[in-house]
Amino acid sequence: MVSHRRPSQTGLASSARTTVLSAAAAATAAAGLGATPAGAEPREPARATRAQVDRLHQEAEQATERFNKAREDAARLRERVAHAQDSVARGQERINRMRDTLGTVAGAQYRSGGVDPALELLLSADPDTYLDRAAVLDRVGERQAHTLSELRSRQRDLGQERAEAARDLTELERSRAEVARHKRSVERKLAEARRLLNSLPDAERDAFDRASRSGRDGVPPGLDGLPASSRHASAAALAARGAVGRPYVWGASGPSGFDCSGLVQWSYAQAGVGLPRTSQAQANAGRRIPLSEARPGDIVTYRGDASHVGMYMGNGQVVHAPYPGASVRYDPVGMMPVHAVTRV
């Protein structure tokens, strides 16, 4: 997760510009009070460490979205494999029944087939009865031939279904491996971020926490009463507000914890709307609109790769799940470069 202390790139982030101007004024005041480069020197390593933690959080979030995508793919493949296996089983049952039918007819023919038909006609006391029997046997033969043809066709279909099921199983195993790989990547980056944070002096660690919270601490800002664009967007925004204060848990989609895309997906689910699991897919889940037209419930994705997402609330604020160790909270919509605003 990148630092949320970056200036806004958008027209709605006046609060972010105010923060930048305030920081500049504070720096000027500090210089006027006689702050020296020597006094700032001990903070340089801590500043570099905090920047590295920000970078690791961002990389962990990107890996989390890849994990979410791989897990979603694996779930879809599991469903497809289960359907294919069920279809193969039903097909095999049909083939077994056809084989039983053909076996019964073949056995009957074998048991009655020892006499040549012409000799049987000569020996028959009633030629008309023989001809009737012969016609019946012809019809039985035709049905048997049809059943045999159908059996061969179903065997070919079954072979194709088995091959497709085998390919899906192979793909499922690949997806499972990808899920595990992305999970290891997330855990490794988060462990490194925790190690770096723990290496900071207590005062610097507290300063990082204060800067990350940006003084909001989950308290709703004064929103501007802007109406949502639809009833379901309003319900989703209400659900997201209700999640403020719950912890960030990577890979989670509620209700007790969330990652960024899990929060958006869960919030819209409370409004009866199904959304994709990843932030990249959520960016394309509706109609793109300018940031200047954003209303509560609109989806805001961030960074060039849309690896972070939040929900617009009005008054230049979003609700989002920032990164591990931070709770769902309000932040300025311009906290980082906006990728897209999407109206569902």
Rank of each mutant, 00 (worst) to 15 (best):
H146S: 13
G91M: 07
E192G: 05
A40S: 10
T28I: 15
F208M: 15
L226E: 10
G11V: 15
L190T: 09
S230Y: 04
H146N: 09
E187Q: 13
A233R: 02
G274A: 13
D224W: 02
L226S: 14
T49C: 04
E120Q: 12
L190C: 08
A35T: 15
Q270A: 07
A60R: 05
E79S: 14
E161V: 11
E79C: 07
D126T: 10
P45G: 13
S3Q: 07
G257E: 00
L77D: 07
S230K: 05
R71L: 11
S212K: 07
H83S: 15
R78I: 05
S327K: 05
G113T: 04
A82N: 09
K189Y: 02
P117Q: 12
G218V: 00
N198S: 14
A118T: 14
G304C: 05
Y312V: 06
T170H: 11
R94W: 07
A31L: 15
H182C: 04
R231W: 01
V20I: 15
Y248Q: 05
G218F: 00
D259I: 02
A23Q: 12
M311G: 06
D298V: 01
D132Q: 07
E204M: 12
R152N: 08
R329D: 02
A24L: 12
H320R: 00
G34V: 10
H320E: 00
A26P: 04
R205D: 08
G32L: 14
V338A: 00
V186Q: 07
D126M: 04
S214R: 03
L190V: 10
Y110I: 09
R194A: 14
H83R: 15
T19F: 09
Q92W: 03
A40H: 09
T170N: 10
R76Q: 13
L223F: 13
A40C: 06
Q282H: 02
S214V: 01
L121H: 01
H182P: 00
A70Y: 07
E204I: 11
A239T: 04
A165H: 07
C260Y: 01
A84F: 02
A166Y: 04
L238D: 11
E187M: 10
R210T: 05
D202L: 12
K189F: 02
E72L: 08
R246P: 00
L196N: 06
P7A: 15
A243I: 01
A191D: 15
Q92Y: 02
W266Q: 01
A180H: 09
A180E: 15
Q317F: 01
E41P: 00
P322V: 03
D168V: 06
S124Y: 08
T49A: 14
T101F: 13
E171C: 03
H182W: 15
L275G: 03
V186D: 11
G107I: 08
E173M: 10
R152F: 01
R216F: 04
Q280K: 09
G34M: 10
A321I: 02
P322I: 00
R152D: 05
K69P: 00
S87M: 11
A145L: 04
G107E: 09
Q92E: 13
F67C: 05
A63E: 10
C260Q: 04
S267V: 02
L148S: 11
A236Y: 05
